[in-house]
Structures are given as structure tokens and as C-alpha cells.
Design a protein around this nucleic acid. Structure first.
Lengths: 187, 187
DNA sequence: AAGTTATATATAACTTGTTGAATATAAATT
DNA sequence: AATTTATATTCAACAAGTTATATATAACTT
């Protein structure tokens, strides 16, 4: 259900098509909820069936028609209820196939693990750059669209994402060091 | 597929029933891959169909029969291939409904957000205790079952989990402070 | 003695998420 | 001029994950 409410939350800011919703997801909720475009479209259909949103087709000359979705009062109520009612367990379920492989590390060929942890570290560093970019964008759009009240909360979530990534990079450095020393001892 | 390979990895250590597999998951892979018992049983069926495991029913007097699964050579090969072939993208997808709510924080009633972040912090602190317990258990069973080679990698993943949790607690403290100050300014 | 909780096993129904493909235009590149 | 890439929309098939339920014994609590 969280996908639905993430979408409803974004539709509170403004009306959007499925495509725009996906793009907005990618520059805001991306680091708290992953989703594929196909899932967005399917969910929009269901949301329309359940009157959480309405759609209107906007005819554009030469281009595709845009199907633009608006949140309904019913949708707003449902969102408001959801956002105020937190689940019992606040720790997010984890599904991380990288670290499972590390767990079974004695079955990984010697240099392969080092190589993959280095790659992991690089990807986390890139992710940090992405977050920094998103932070700037958030600040810009808060001013442009008069969403200064929202910005405070956006920045809270960005701060958390940053800390998480820094912890990953920190771990990767320590892990690489430990593996190097282990190799040395075993000579 | 990662669930399957997590299960195969554990079955490399020893034969187990579905119930035991779930319990082992909960004290080892729990903080990298969540799963429900029902999923374990269904996956075992499929794994048997595809000859990654075989089962034999162990009759016990008075108690339920135990259906004990063993990894096959085919299963071992499949696992070995999987554990050595890392995915292109090493960053795990995230699905965290707690932090989405924080993102839309201006729609949360005043004291509710503070209350929920405090609850989040407490749950993370408990999770840290759990990890510490798992760490001790890992060290114990490594000695008892002569899995000292594995222990090194287990501890790597535990180290990572710890760092992640500490980052969460750290964020929660900062967030609570920021929210307190924000409230003060707005008076 | 009765009720509850933990252990132990498993299936069915449902919901959610992923993969891959189909369709079509505009803009950029070779 | 032809090809590729980006924009834009959607659906069908499949895989994975969740919820609810059923069964049964042992151990513990009231």
C-alpha cells in the first residue's frame, strides 16, 4: 500500500501523468521506495477504480495525449489517515543480495570479493553524489513552488540517506582493510 | 532468487527442515534478507522439483515427522555460481514506509512525528541488542561447529549491520533536536 | 483441569514487484 | 538518410512476498 500513498502524497503537490509521477519518484522518494514504471501505471488504474484519483485526457497536438491524474477528496482523506498512522514495526524489511554473498564469503574466489566490495564502495559514492544533487533540486523547487514548509521534512529524509551511505562507505573501507590483513596473515 | 540461494547457503552447513531453516535465517541472515515461514516451505518445494535439494522424512515417535532437506551437487553448483556472480547494481532496493511518512511530515500532527521518531529510535536500539546477541551466537557456533573460516565473513556482515543501525540512531537524535528547535522558532 | 504459549509443519489466496515487449514521436548523432 | 536515444504510455506474464488458516504436540501458567 505504501506505493499508493507515496503516489498520493506527490499528487498532493500537483496533478501529474504516470510518466511524470515516475520521474518525480526518481528525484524524491527514490531512496526510500523503489518502483518500476509499470507498477505506477497499474496502481494508477486501481486508484482510479477506488476513487482516490480522477484522470482527464489532455490532447496535445502532434504529441501523445497526456493522461493527467488528480487526487480526489477521498484520496486526500486516505492519505491523511495513512501518513498519521505509523506501523507497529518501524524498521524497514531488508533484502540485500550483495551482503548475503559476503556472508558466504569463504565460497567466493580470492580477489573477487575485494573487487566487488570496491565496486560497492564506488556505487555508494555515486549514490552520495545523487543525493547531493537531489538536495539542491529540493531546495530549488521548494522556493520556486512555495513549498518551504515541506522542505524541512525533505531535508530530514535526505540527511538520513546521507548518513546511511556514509556508513556503507565506512564499512567498505574497513572490510577491505580486514580482508587485506587476513590475506597477509594466511601467507 | 536470493531467497533460494540464502537457503542453499545455509544448507551447505547442514541438513535442515523448513522450520529449522526459518530459525537459522532469523539468527543469521535476518538483517540482510527477511522472509516468512510460508515462503520458505514453498521455495523448498520448488527447489526439490528442480533438484537443488532432496528431502527425506524422519519419523520420530510421538512427535511430528520431520522433513529434512539436503543440498544436492546440482544445488551446490548453482549456489557456487550465484555467490561468485554479483549483480551489476550492488545497492539494495529500499522500501521504507516509515521514512516516506517523514517526507510528508507537514501533514503529520504536531507531537505525533516526535513520538514516532522516538519509537523508531527505541526499535533501532533494540535491533542493536539483537545484533550483539547474534554476534555472540555466531562466535559460539563457529567454535562448536568448526566454522572458524566462515566466522570472519559473518562478522563482516554483522559489522555492517551495526554501523547501519548506529547511523539510524544518530539520525533520530539529530532529527528530534531539529524538530524541537523548529517548534520553538515557530512560537 | 483449563487455557495459553511455544514448537513444528504446511497450504491457499491474495497482493506486490519484475521483466519484457509493444507502440509512437521528437531530437540528436553518425 | 539512417540509426540511436530520449520522451511518453501501457499491458501481459511471471516471480516473489504477505496474510490467513489448519493441524497437532509439548510445556508452561493460572
Amino acid at each position: 500500500m505504501s506505493l499508493r500513498f507515496g503516489m498520493l502524497g506527490l499528487l498532493c503537490y500537483q496533478d501529474m501523468s504516470g510518466y511524470e509521477l515516475k520521474k518525480t519518484f526518481d528525484t524524491s522518494l527514490q531512496f526510500m521506495w523503489n518502483t518500476k514504471t509499470s507498477q505506477i501505471y497499474r496502481e494508477l488504474q486501481r486508484m482510479e477504480e477506488q476513487n482516490h484519483v480522477t484522470s482527464s485526457v489532455e490532447v496535445q497536438d502532434k504529441k501523445f495525449d497526456r493522461k493527467v491524474y488528480s487526487i480526489t477528496n477521498r484520496g486526500r482523506d486516505a492519505f491523511h489517515e495513512w501518513v498519521n498512522k505509523f506501523p507497529k514495526n518501524l524498521i524497514a524489511p531488508i533484502r540485500d543480495e550483495f551482503i548475503i554473498r559476503v556472508f558466504f564469503g569463504e565460497q567466493i574466489e580470492a580477489n573477487n570479493l575485494t573487487f566487488e566490495i570496491q565496486r560497492f564502495k564506488k556505487q555508494q559514492e555515486e549514490e552520495l553524489e545523487t543525493i547531493l544533487f537531489i538536495e539542491k533540486e529540493a531546495e530549488k523547487s521548494a522556493v520556486e513552488e512555495r513549498l518551504e514548509d515541506s522542505l524541512f521534512y525533505w531535508l530530514l529524509t535526505i540527511k538520513r540517506a546521507k548518513k546511511g551511505i556514509i556508513a556503507e562507505i565506512d564499512w567498505a573501507n574497513e572490510a577491505l582493510e580486514l580482508i587485506k590483513n587476513k590475506g597477509r596473515e594466511e601467507q
